[in-house]
Structure formats: structure tokens, C-alpha cells
């Protein structure tokens, strides 16, 4: 698996840390929304959007689009630009 970092180009998986599914920021005033965001996952078998950190490269947080059935990576954008 390689990830096309928008800053560094296509780089090996071992340079990145995966944080997991992109979740919408929970409403801080309700407990259940916070618990859901912390613990529950869609965990889809298919296309997904995840946060990855280019720890051994530019140190950008990325939003990576990937298929969990095949590991095919279809895109990566800086998280700041992706708005999440």
C-alpha cells in the first residue's frame, strides 16, 4: 500500500500512522454524541475516508480515500483543505 501525499508524492505505508475513520466533530453539549464519536464506527467494507498522519515525511494530517476490501488508495488531501 502506498499513499500519494499531496506534498511529498507517493510514499510507502511505513511512513504513515493511521488514526482511523473521519468522524464529524460531535456536538459538545450532548453526552451521547460524544460517546458515539469516541466509540462507534461505520467500519465499512468498501470505500472509506480516514485520517492518516505523514509522520516520517511532511507531518501533514491527510484525509485518505481507500477501499477496505482491496487496500486500493484512490486519493489523499491535506485534512485542513478537506475541512475535517
Amino acid at each position: 500500500m502506498r499513499i500519494p501525499c499531496p506534498y511529498c508524492g507517493e510514499r510507502d505505508l511505513s511512513e504513515f500512522v493511521c488514526r482511523g475513520e473521519v468522524a464529524t466533530r460531535p456536538d459538545p453539549t450532548t453526552l451521547s454524541a460524544g460517546l458515539d464519536a469516541l466509540y462507534l464506527r461505520d467500519n465499512p467494507a468498501g470505500p472509506t475516508r480516514e485520517h492518516w498522519y505523514h509522520a516520517q515525511g511532511c507531518r501533514l494530517w491527510l484525509v485518505v480515500e481507500r477501499d477496505t476490501r482491496t487496500h486500493a488508495v484512490t486519493g489523499a488531501r491535506p485534512a485542513a483543505e478537506a475541512g475535517s
Partner: peptide
């Protein structure tokens, strides 16, 4: 990382 591929990297 999340996977349903039954193979790793």
C-alpha cells in the same frame, strides 16, 4: 488500518 482484505502489507 481497517481492512476486510484477509491479507496484509
Amino acid at each position: 488500518y481497517q481492512s476486510y482484505a484477509q491479507r496484509g502489507n
